[in-house]
């Protein structure tokens, strides 16, 4: 890990928890240094400049140290204030838990940082564009080694046309199956256009009809990396949606 960032760098707060008598540990996601645990000395005192720092805050930080925990020297808020009240807060928990569970401290991931930032803005500023979560999930999975060929049938080699409205199948750990092949156990049905979107640059939102398949596909892949312990934030989101009588994709606007 870099021994210091006294010149400063950009960061998002992922989580915070108490440390010793009056301090905080902030789990930061920085652009240049990756994920960091930073001790904010005196951060639990009411007048501390670190007292208001919590998940969903964009910062410019200076820190010093090496090893598992560095010392936060300075933190200033920057950028537009994003609203993480209500449903947006539950989504923020989900994104942050994914980063905390699936990335390592001290591993620089500047491109994922940019996608994370775009995702937060899409969720909080742009009318809750839930499809941005799928873009973040795909990028995170790519970093974890996910690289299936989503454009060619695993059985017969048929190439998927971008506008194919027929149902293709995503086959976890193998790739995709065209409509002419019986789906294998565990395959996930998805219109061809959805697979093309998943394989593309994801700059624009997908068709609403593709969202359930996209979510199931990415969720299946993420589950493989999360071992037996499911995401707590996902359980909370599911509990909320169940009591509200909605499913994930009814929330997927934009």
């Amino acid at each position: 890990m870099t021994a210091t960032a006294e010149g400063g760098e950009r960061a998002w707060v992922l989580h915070r928890y108490p440390y010793r008598d009056t301090s905080l540990v902030l789990e930061l996601f920085t652009r240049e240094s990756g994920r960091l645990g930073a001790v904010a000395r005196g951060g639990r005192r009411p007048r501390s400049p670190f007292a208001a720092l919590e998940a969903g805050r964009s910062l410019w930080v200076r820190w010093r140290g090496r090893g598992d925990l560095v010392t936060l020297l300075q933190a200033e808020e920057q950028g537009e204030v994003l609203d993480f009240t209500g449903m947006n807060g539950l989504i923020l928990f989900y994104l942050n838990e994914l980063l905390l569970r699936l990335t390592q401290r001290g591993d620089p991931l500047p491109e994922l940082f940019d996608v994370y930032e775009q995702t937060l803005q899409s969720v909080a500023l742009a009318g809750r564009q839930i499809w941005a979560l799928r873009r973040f999930e795909r990028r995170l999975l790519e970093i974890l080694g996910w690289a299936p060929d989503l454009q060619v049938c695993h059985h017969c080699g048929r190439r998927l046309r971008g506008d194919d409205a027929r149902t293709w199948y995503y086959w976890p750990e193998h790739g995709v199956l065209c409509p002419d092949h019986r789906p294998a156990p565990g395959t996930i049905a998805m219109p061809g256009g959805g697979l093309t979107w998943l394989a593309g640059d994801m700059a624009e939102g997908p068709s609403l009809a593709w969202l359930p398949g996209l979510r199931r596909c990415l969720e299946r892949e993420l589950r493989g990396h999360l071992s037996a312990r499911p995401l707590e934030s996902h359980r909370l989101l599911a509990a909320y949606l169940a009591q509200a009588g909605q499913d994930h994709d009814q929330r997927s606007t934009g």
Binding site: A55, G86, G89
Partner: peptide, 17 residues
């Protein structure tokens, strides 16, 4: 008025709908 407190309020609000 923290992220956790807001999420809790939102969840409880859902229970009372």
């Amino acid at each position: 008025p923290t992220v956790e407190g807001e999420a809790t309020a939102h969840f409880l609000g859902g229970m009372m709908r």
